[in-house]
């Protein structure tokens, strides 16, 4: 088994953990944690593919840097949305936020 395959399997593991958490969690913060896991798996897969093949290593590393920047922006916005939802509904559980309009 080549080294790249091993790294891809680890990244796949992170994707699976994130997907499973996203379906199981009942609070918005727990879902945010799962999404961060998946984004990390994507970054690891990108860097491994760029470093271990003939592909341009600069492009792989910069792409992962952009993924990190997007993850930071996404976490900021999700935090703001969670705070607004918690203020309006009194909780951040997904089961409580099922009404569209009161």
């Amino acid at each position: 088994m080549s080294a790249l395959t091993l790294y891809q399997i680890v990244a796949l593991m992170l994707l699976c953990a994130g997907l499973f958490g996203l379906t199981q969690r009942r609070s918005l913060v727990g879902m945010l944690i799962s999404v961060e896991l998946m984004l990390n798996g994507a970054g690891l897969s990108l860097v491994a593919a760029a470093q271990l093949t003939e592909f341009s290593a600069t492009l792989g590393q910069l792409g992962t840097l952009f993924v990190m920047g997007l993850a930071a922006a996404e976490a900021t916005l999700v935090l703001a949305i969670i705070v607004v939802v918690a203020k309006r509904f009194g909780s951040a559980q997904t089961s409580d936020i099922t009404t569209l309009k009161e």
């Binding site: 961060e36 990390n40 990190m68 976490a75 900021t76």
Partner: peptide
């Protein structure tokens, strides 16, 4: 970025939503 900034943001989200003591 992740360990320094994003995890602190998530911790703020947990605190600001008044997470229950018995686990959410």
């Amino acid at each position: 970025i992740y360990v320094g900034a994003v995890s602190v943001l998530i911790f703020f989200a947990i605190m600001l939503t008044r997470a229950e003591a018995g686990g959410d």
